[in-house]
Structure formats: C-alpha cells, structure tokens
C-alpha cells in the first residue's frame, strides 16, 4: 500500500508542479458549461430541462482533456517500465494513477457542479442527486479513460484517437448518471439508475484496471 500512496502523491505533486491540471480542468468545465446557453438560447425553462445533460456531458469532456498525458509522461521518462517491473501488481499502480486523475479532474467537477447547476437553472431539488451521481460516475470516467490513455501510447495523433475510443464506452455511465437526475425532475424513482451507476463503478473497476494494465504492458514491450 505504501507504493500506492507514493504513486498517488507523486502524480498529485506533478500535477500541482505543472501549473495545476486540476485548475485547468476546472476552468475548462466552467467555460464549456457557460458556452451552452449561447448555443441553445437563454430560455430558463429550456436550460432547466437540459441542464443535467449539459453538466454531465461537459464533465465527460473535462475528464478527457488530460487523458492523453496520463501515461505518456511515464512512458517517456521510463517510469512505466519501473512500474511494470516492481513487486506491486501493475493493476494496483494503475488504480493509483486513476485515483490521482480523478482527484485532479473528477473531484473539482463534483465540487463545482452545484454552482454550474445554478447558472443553467437546474431545479434545486435535483442538486444533491447531481452531486451524488457525479461522485459515483466521475471515477468511472477516469477508469474507462485510463484504458484509452494506455491503449494509444505510442500512437500517431493520439489526442483525437482517445476521444473516438473512449466516448462510446462512456455511454452507459452517462445515461444512468443523467437518468438519476432526470428521475428527480420527473418524480420517478431515483434509486434504480443510481444503483446501476454504482454497479457499473463496482464491476467496471477491476475490468478497467486489468485492461489498462494489459495495454500498458503492450506499450513497453
């Protein structure tokens, strides 16, 4: 567990050193949400109806902005090979990387989501569920994103490629994350989508860790 903590701490330190990945993701999230009213118009009713979707889709895009860098730096400076050779299972180290990625990209979005929800007129009754659904869903975004980040190591044009690979795989968590918020707005049952979202997180975590580790081993072979 010491390596796990060390890896998380190192990634977080790197993120702060590089001038704050978290801050950048946060600014992206805020600006991207704020652009939507310019696209669909300022009508409060319309915004209220689509606000959950706007926030969730923007959270998805925000989580992807730093995916390309997730493992590339480790590959270039050789620390990926050290990770693969160390006694700790690579899957555990992938988990540490994902946790660090979530802290710098998912957590800020969760924290700031009520403010953005207010700006685009989401019903206050749904705020809590929005926070909960994002708190469950954003780790999935990081985990699935990690598979994409590991797969494109060494590829040409990896930035656009990650989007093509990762976006379709994120459809389920997006649907149930937004579904939970919409359930509140429509007066339907909130628990089914929320529980399914949690199930995706629980079942998806080992799968994503395994797939990322396999992809990383391919990259250094």
């Amino acid at each position: 567990m010491t390596t796990f903590g060390a890896l998380v701490r190192r990634d977080l330190a790197l993120a702060t050193l590089r001038g704050g990945d978290a801050a950048l993701t946060l600014v992206f999230f805020v600006v991207a949400v704020a652009v939507f009213p310019f696209g669909v118009g300022p009508d409060p009713d319309l915004l209220a109806r689509i606000s959950a979707g706007i926030i969730w889709v923007t959270a998805l895009l925000a989580s992807m902005t730093s995916l390309e860098r997730l493992y590339r730096v480790d590959l270039e400076d050789g620390s990926l090979e050290i990770m693969a050779l160390s006694a700790q299972p690579l899957e555990l180290q992938v988990a540490a990387k994902c946790l660090a990625h979530w802290v710098t990209s998912g957590l800020p979005v969760v924290v700031l989501s009520p403010l953005m929800a207010m700006l685009i007129n989401l019903d206050m009754a749904a705020w809590w569920i929005l926070i909960v659904s994002l708190a469950i869903g954003t780790p999935v975004l990081s985990l699935v994103g990690s598979i994409g980040g590991a797969l494109v190591l060494g590829a040409r044009k990896s930035g656009a490629l990650i989007g093509l690979i990762v976006l379709p795989l994120q459809v389920p968590v997006l649907i149930f994350g937004i579904g939970a918020v919409e359930a509140v707005l429509r007066g339907g049952p909130v628990w089914p989508p929320l529980l399914i979202e949690a199930a995706i997180l629980i079942a998806g975590t080992p799968l994503a860790l395994w797939a990322s580790a396999v992809a990383l081993r391919m990259a250094i072979e």
């Binding site: 590829a155 040409r156 093509l164």
Partner: peptide
C-alpha cells in the same frame, strides 16, 4: 475506434 487504433501505429 478499432480501425483507427489498429492503423495508428
């Protein structure tokens, strides 16, 4: 995605 990834290396 499969085709793009396979051809990207």
């Amino acid at each position: 995605g499969y085709m793009a990834l396979a051809g990207a290396f």
